[in-house]
Simulated assay, not measured.
Amino acid sequence: MQIIENVQLPPEEMFARLADHENLGKALGVPVKRIRDGEGSVNGVGSVRTMAFWPLDFDETITAFDPPRRIEYSVSRGSPLRQHSAVILLSPRGAGTEVSWSVSFASAIPLAGRLLRMVMRLALTHGIRKLAANP
């Protein structure tokens, strides 16, 4: 699944907003807490954030962090999905930024996978727009 949104912020500003774990939680409307600092940056490679909202409780680990262009993460604990990972790419577009957020995962139940993709698409699109509108 891939989401592409164009926002009216420069890549550096949008990257900073996406990289901040607590800020991301506010935009997505779920509690997010950094439980381990990353290397070189608190939100960088090796950083772990936890998300806990009923009935889910899982961790995401940052696996690539290249300001202001790329963030990659994978679910490292607790997800009912297999091989759950994502890549966020930011590219300059005029005075703004194109945000490409690609998520992949495997689900043992095909219809559940489709439903989750729809829910994720809505949540991530809303989150990107909210982050772009509010600091």
Rank of each mutant, 00 (worst) to 15 (best):
1 M>F: 09
2 Q>T: 13
3 I>S: 05
3 I>W: 01
4 I>H: 03
5 E>L: 04
6 N>Q: 13
7 V>G: 05
9 L>N: 08
9 L>H: 09
12 E>P: 00
14 M>K: 03
14 M>F: 09
18 L>Y: 05
19 A>F: 06
20 D>K: 02
22 E>L: 02
22 E>F: 01
24 L>P: 00
25 G>W: 06
26 K>I: 02
26 K>Q: 15
27 A>G: 04
27 A>N: 05
31 P>L: 02
31 P>C: 06
31 P>G: 11
32 V>S: 06
35 I>Y: 06
38 G>R: 04
39 E>Q: 14
40 G>M: 08
42 V>P: 10
43 N>L: 07
44 G>S: 09
51 M>E: 10
51 M>V: 15
51 M>W: 05
52 A>P: 00
53 F>Y: 14
54 W>G: 01
56 L>T: 09
57 D>H: 10
57 D>R: 01
57 D>G: 05
59 D>S: 10
59 D>W: 07
59 D>V: 03
59 D>R: 03
60 E>V: 00
60 E>F: 00
64 A>R: 12
65 F>S: 04
66 D>S: 12
66 D>C: 07
66 D>W: 01
67 P>L: 08
70 R>E: 15
71 I>Q: 00
72 E>Y: 10
72 E>P: 03
74 S>N: 07
76 S>Q: 01
78 G>H: 08
78 G>W: 08
80 P>F: 14
82 R>T: 08
86 A>F: 03
86 A>N: 07
88 I>R: 02
91 S>Q: 15
92 P>T: 11
93 R>D: 07
95 A>T: 13
96 G>E: 07
97 T>E: 01
102 S>T: 11
102 S>P: 00
104 S>C: 04
104 S>M: 10
105 F>K: 06
108 A>I: 14
110 P>G: 14
110 P>R: 11
117 R>N: 14
118 M>Y: 07
122 L>Q: 12
124 L>D: 04
124 L>H: 03
125 T>E: 11
128 I>T: 04
130 K>F: 11
132 A>E: 11
133 A>Y: 08
133 A>V: 11
133 A>I: 08
134 N>E: 13
